[in-house]
Each structure stands twice: as structure tokens, then as C-alpha cells.
Design a protein around this nucleic acid. Structure first.
Lengths: 146, 146
DNA sequence: TATTGTTATACTCTATAACTATA
DNA sequence: TATAGTTATAGAGTATAACAATA
């Protein structure tokens, strides 16, 4: 017999009523879902995000990408190396110090697949939120990031 | 001169309009904030959450806690060991296989400080959300976890 | 047979410091 | 002086597999 009782479930219900805790749990659940949906095209969430940021851009540096996506500069090289090794991006020198990160043809092709998956995912996510709350979700989240 | 242009900012604005991306960013920002607020009392977010779950309970096992908080069973021992080494919890045998995790007096004292910090944090979080959206935030998040 | 607690292990993300070379 | 790119390293969270002992 499991030891988890109704009393314990009640306490857990208390936790889930805290916006901070609910935010962490919802984010974790949704990112696990998106990770699973992107796995078939061999992309991590962070990698797909970088590809989306690069679309139509031919002058963004590694540092630019890090600033836009809130990724530390020091954590960009391994991320970009994986994308480069997969042939999805290449580097173009801007001057003797900086280099632009740009999509290859294979990168644009993979991005198209990623866009399809993420847009279906976003639709799924919103569909989970009951109607009266749905339109308020994005503005509320954006207020927390700014 | 930085390479980040207005065009790049615009693309980033596109990303932040995706609910899934906004959810991840908001969660990351808020958890970093809570982590910083809990650091002075030497508690991680996950540790404070466990203490809160244990309040008033004297029969929850390691497995119970993992199930409630969505933490894998295998990841509980190191978490609980840190709390035990800090004198905040102790183990009480339920039978020859299971043991209850319970708060010590020091654990209840630390929990009181954590409750104060987290309630101030929750208040801060909600205050960041503009009035028309605020009341819809928690129900929307809870719909994504269920 | 299923569950509990545990160990080992590995991967991902994140964070800080430090170094070089160039703007 | 500040910035770009990189390397090294460490911490934290998460995931799977496997084991012994007990329900």
C-alpha cells in the first residue's frame, strides 16, 4: 500500500496554488513536451530556438545570439559547434574579431520542420488553457520577463 | 560598435510572442529571483519546496515526496542527504522497508524563514503582472500542469 | 510481483573565471 | 578600455538502468 495519503495530496494542492511553484511546474511540463516533439528531427529546444532567431539574418554574432536568448556567452560555443557539426549553420567573418552565424541550406530545411513542430506545440499549449484565461496568458508572462 | 541591430531585436520580439518561449523565459527569470532570495538562508528552491511539503506531515516517504514534486526517485537521496546533513530533517522507520521524512526543530525554524521569503516573492511576482491579467495567471498555469 | 531506497552514471543547462586577440 | 570568442570548470537539475531488500 502506498504511503501517500489524502492529507499529503492536500498539502501538495497548497503548493500548486503558489504562482511561482505553478510557473515552474508548468514550464517544466511544457518544455518536456516540446523536447519530445523536437527529438524526431534531432534538435534540442535551445538549438531550435537559435535556428529560429537566425532566420532571415546574416549578421548575428555568437554574442548577439546569447544576449537575445539570455544564454551566457561562454555557453554558446558548444551549442553552435553542435549546429555547425550537423551542417545547419556556418560562420562568416565580419572583421578580424567577429563572425556572423548564418543558416546553411540544410539549416533552413531543418528550421522549416522545427517551425511546423513548434507552431503545432504552441497551438496545443494554448488549447490546454480554458477560454476565459487564454488571452491573458502571454501578456502576464511577458510582464515577468521584462 | 555592437552588432545587434534593430532587425535582430525584432526577430527576438517574434520569439517572445510564442507562449512556450515566453513561459520558459518567465520561469527562468522568476526562479533565478527566488534562488537569490533563498540563498541567504542557505536553501535551494528544491530544498525549500521539500520543507514546505513536509510541514505538518510525519509519514511522507522519499518516494511520496518525489511523486508530489515531480522529482525522480533516484534524485531524492542526494537532496534529502543535504537536508539531513544540515539537521533540517530526520528519518523515522515506518516498517522494515520504508521510512518517513520529518522536519526537525531546526527544520521547522528554517521553514518559517523560507515561508516568509517565498510569500514575499509570490507577492512580488504577482505585482509584476498588470491588473487585468493577474487573476487569470494561476488558473492558466494550473491547466498546463494537469 | 511490485515497491522502496539506493548507487552509479550521464546529459543538459547554467554560472564564473580567465585568457587571447581585436574593436 | 571594452568587446568577441573561447576554454576550463563547477554546480544544479534531470534521466535511465540496475541492484538488494521488503511489501
Amino acid at each position: 500500500m502506498p504511503h501517500l495519503t489524502e492529507a499529503a495530496s492536500f498539502v501538495n494542492a497548497d503548493l500548486i496554488d503558489l504562482p511561482g511553484y505553478a510557473l515552474r511546474r508548468a514550464s517544466h511540463a511544457m518544455m518536456a513536451e516540446l523536447k519530445a516533439r523536437l527529438a524526431p528531427i534531432d534538435l534540442r529546444v535551445s538549438e531550435a530556438t537559435v535556428l529560429m532567431l537566425l532566420e532571415g539574418q546574416d549578421h548575428l554574432t555568437s554574442s548577439d545570439i546569447g544576449k537575445s536568448l539570455d544564454i551566457q556567452r561562454a555557453n554558446m560555443p558548444p551549442l553552435l559547434s553542435r549546429l555547425e557539426d550537423a551542417g545547419l549553420i556556418r560562420r562568416r567573418p565580419l572583421d578580424k574579431k567577429s563572425q556572423a552565424i548564418i543558416l546553411t541550406a540544410a539549416g533552413r530545411s531543418r528550421l522549416a520542420k522545427a517551425r511546423k513542430i513548434t507552431s503545432e506545440f504552441e497551438e496545443h499549449l494554448l488549447s490546454l488553457i480554458p477560454e476565459p484565461h487564454r488571452e491573458h496568458f502571454l501578456p502576464a508572462l511577458q510582464a515577468l520577463t521584462a
